[in-house]
Design a protein around this nucleic acid. Structure first.
Lengths: 228, 228
DNA sequence: CAACGTAATTTTGAATTCATAATTAAGTCA
DNA sequence: TGACTTAATTATGAATTCAAAATTACGTTG
C-alpha cells in the first residue's frame, strides 16, 4: 500500500502542515467551491495521503474560518457573506493601520526603495490594465509593509483574515473608477511611507481597507457570490 | 476497550473540539507547564480518548500559538516570551480600540447598565484586595465591551490573542501602584463608554493595554517566568 | 404515483495498528 | 572511567480498521 502514483502526491515534511497550505490554496482559488462539501476521499486520493492528516488539516482550517465542520456530516467550504465582509474589513483596517504606524518606525531606506520599486511596477500594470499582475504586486506591497512593521503576530493575524477575504475572485469586478481610486490611495500610501509619517499612513491604510470593503460589498450584492 | 473509568472522561459532542477547550484551560492555568512537553499518552488516559482526536486538537492549538509542534519530537507548551509580549499587546491594543469604537456605536442602555454593575463589583473587589475576583470581573467587562461591538470576528481575534497572554499568572505580580492605576483607567473606560465617546474610549483602551504590557514585561524581566 | 418506512450503502468519527524516527539502555574498547 | 557504538525501547506520524451516524436505494402501502 501507499506510494500513490499521483504526481501531486506529497512526500516532504509534516503532512498536515503541507495539507493546510494546499487546501488553503484550493479554497482561495475556488477550486473548492464556496458552499460545497469538502470531498475528503477525493482529496486523499489526489494527495496520496490517508484521512488522518487530511482531517487534521481540516480542523485547523475550520479554526481559521475557511471551512465549517458539521458534526457527522463532514466539512464544508465557507462562503464569503456580507456579514463576514462587514466584520472582517474593519478588523483588517485596524490591523493595517497599526502595521503602517509600526512600519514607519522600523522600516529601512532599502525597504522603502524596494516598495517604491514595487509601486512603479504596479503602476505599469495599471497602465496596461493587467489586473492579475496589479493584484499580485498589490499584495506584495501590503506584505512588505507588514514585514517592515517587525511584528510577526500582527503579520500572522493580518494574513489569516486576508485569506478569508481572498476566497472570491471579486477583483474581476473592480470597476475602472474603483481601480483609479485604489491607485490614488496607493500613491498616498507610498508618499506617507517614504516620509515615515505614521499617523497619516495609518489613516490612509484604514481608508484603503474601507474602500475595499465597499468594493467587495458591491460585488457581493450584485450577485457575485453565485457560484452554485 | 474504550469506556474509560476516569470521571473526567469526555462523552458529549465533538471530541477534538472539547479537547481544544480542555487543553486551553490546562495551558492557561499552567497545569501544563510552559516549556514542557505535552504528555500525549497521559492526557489520552486522563480524558479517556485515543490519540487521534487529541492530536487533532494539538494541531489547532499549534496554529493558535499555544503549543509548538516539533517534527518527530511531539508537542511542547509555548512560553510567554518578552518578544511575544512586545508583539501581542500592541495588536490587542489596536483591536480593543476598535472594539471600543464599535461598542459606542452599538451598545444598548441595558448593556451599559450591566457593565456599570460589573464595574461596581470590580471596585468592591479592589477595595477588599481580592485580586482573583478583580481579575475575573475585569475579564467580564472587556468581554462585554467586545460583545457590544457586534463583531464576532473581532471578538474571536481578541480572545485568541488574550489567551496567549493569559498563560502566566502574572497578575500575582501586580503592584499596588499598578493596580490603582488600572482601576483609574477603568473609571475612565466606563465614563467614556457611558458617554458613548468612541474616540476617547478607543484611546483609553489602547493606553490600558499598553500599561498592561509594561506590567507583564516587568514581571517577565524580574524572572517571573521561571517555572521550570 | 407519492409518501412513508426500512434495508443497503456510504461517510464520518475515533480507536487501533504499524513503520519509522528518536530516545534510552547496554555493551565495547581505549 | 568515559567516550563511542549499537541494540532495545519508546514515541511519533500516518495508515488502517471499526462502530455509529447519515445518506441513499428500494419496496410497500395508501
Amino acid at each position: 500500500m501507499m506510494q500513490a502514483p499521483n504526481p501531486h502526491a506529497i512526500t516532504r515534511k509534516s503532512l498536515h502542515h503541507e495539507l493546510v497550505d494546499r487546501l488553503q490554496t484550493l479554497i482561495i482559488n475556488a477550486e473548492l467551491e464556496p458552499g460545497s462539501k469538502v470531498p475528503e476521499k477525493l482529496l486523499c486520493d489526489q494527495f496520496g495521503v490517508s484521512r488522518t492528516p487530511l482531517r487534521e488539516a481540516l480542523k485547523v482550517l475550520a479554526s481559521d474560518g475557511l471551512v465549517r465542520l458539521e458534526p457527522n456530516r463532514g466539512a464544508w467550504v465557507t462562503r464569503v457573506t456580507i456579514e463576514e465582509v462587514e466584520e472582517v474589513f474593519p478588523v483588517l483596517g485596524a490591523l493595517e493601520a497599526l502595521s503602517g504606524e509600526l512600519a514607519c518606525k522600523h522600516i529601512s531606506d532599502d525597504e522603502i526603495a524596494a516598495i517604491s520599486d514595487l509601486h512603479e511596477q504596479m503602476m505599469q500594470s495599471y497602465k496596461v490594465r493587467d489586473l492579475g499582475a496589479y493584484f499580485s504586486i498589490n499584495q506584495k506591497i501590503h506584505r512588505a509593509i507588514l514585514l517592515a512593521a517587525r511584528n510577526g503576530t500582527l503579520a500572522t493575524s493580518c494574513q489569516a483574515l486576508s485569506l478569508r477575504m481572498q476566497r472570491a475572485r471579486y477583483l474581476a469586478n473592480m470597476t475602472q473608477g474603483r481601480w483609479q481610486e485604489a491607485v490614488h490611495e496607493h500613491e498616498r500610501i507610498l508618499e506617507f511611507l517614504a516620509a515615515r509619517d505614521g499617523p497619516n499612513l495609518a489613516r490612509t491604510l484604514m481608508d484603503h481597507m474601507n474602500s475595499k470593503r465597499l468594493s467587495v460589498l458591491r460585488w457581493l450584492q450584485s450577485g457575485g457570490a453565485t457560484t452554485d
